[in-house]
Write a protein that binds this DNA or RNA. Structure first.
Length: 275
DNA sequence: CCGACAACCTGTGAGC
DNA sequence: TGCTCACAGGTTGTCG
């Protein structure tokens, strides 16, 4: 479910509700996520004030001063602000309880497929191995044409797979990789090292634009993705190619095609994407 | 270092 | 209506 725009949308919603609040405890109903949730989570967080909630790639990091929580929503996760006494539903695995200016609240983590994770990192959370080796943020300064061209040098994999590689750039998942390549007019199966410097400049630009557009639309709502406050996003109404196999391209009328790349579905327009 | 692929797990929709 | 199958937003780890 969540790609970078959905995670960022979640972060903003959560931050608005509980920034500067203090954790009063945690309830773990099912700690069997991708990696085990710390069994002593309740003790770890109790009494700690939330200094900041930041996003790195698709991770949400709760900075608690000396130590931090690292949360990933995986494929099917969501984090919502709810009243603490609201009954938990199926797959509501964790509640992080807070108290602050808005009174007692709960951050409720739901994740049917349990591909997500919630980890504790002492000291500086950015030093956690999962975060330490990530590539640059797509919306940050480190992601420009010169960087991308260099990062793709010597890589023969298809550009779409390279774009989804977290060492090249973080936060670009299957949906937005498809959409960005369409906007750039680049074939998804083109070898990454065959892109010119100019292609890279174009690609950087459309990746940033696509993600920014999606954030502005409140992310995408596939199946049941909802924001921190339960509202849906609307970016999926703007998809040019994703999920549109055999439908006419909005730009040229050609039928959108579908193929498999690295066990994932790729959608592209054979006419608009010939570079 | 690079690339290919299996694995983690549940839900949903299509087809029969 | 109910069964089976393919597929779904992500990422790590292993193997050649």
């Amino acid at each position: 479910m969540p790609e970078l725009p959905e995670v960022e949308t979640t972060r903003r919603g959560i931050a608005q509700a509980v920034d500067t609040a203090t954790f009063t405890g945690a309830i773990v109903r099912n700690g069997s996520l991708r990696w085990p949730v710390p069994p002593d989570l309740d003790d770890l967080v109790r009494g700690r004030r939330i200094q900041a909630i930041v996003r790195r790639a698709k991770y949400l990091v709760f900075d608690l001063g000396s130590g931090g929580l690292i949360l990933h929503l995986g494929m099917s996760g969501s984090l919502r602000v709810v009243a603490p006494d609201r009954p938990a539903e199926k797959h509501d695995h964790i509640d992080l309880l807070t108290d602050g200016p808005a009174g007692p609240q709960a951050l409720r983590y739901r994740d049917p497929r349990r591909f997500g994770c919630l980890l504790w990192q002492p000291g500086d959370a950015a030093l956690h191995p999962l975060l330490a080796s990530l590539g640059p943020e797509p919306l940050g300064d480190g992601f420009d044409a010169a960087y991308l061209h260099g990062a793709l040098a010597g890589r023969q994999v298809a550009i779409k797979l390279a774009l989804m590689d977290n060492h090249v750039v973080v936060g670009v998942g299957n949906i937005y990789a498809n959409e960005a390549l369409f906007r750039a007019g680049i074939r998804p199966d083109r070898p990454a090292n065959a892109l010119s410097r100019r292609d890279c400049a174009r690609l950087v630009e459309v990746v940033r634009q696509t993600l920014a557009d999606a954030i502005a639309a409140g992310g995408s709502t596939l199946r049941d993705f909802l924001h921190a406050d339960g509202q849906p996003g609307y970016f999926q109404q703007q998809y040019a190619v994703y999920g549109r196999a055999d439908e006419p391209c909005h730009a040229c009328g050609s039928l959108v095609r579908q193929m498999r790349q690295g066990q994932r579905s790729t959608f592209w327009c054979p006419h608009c994407q010939r570079r």
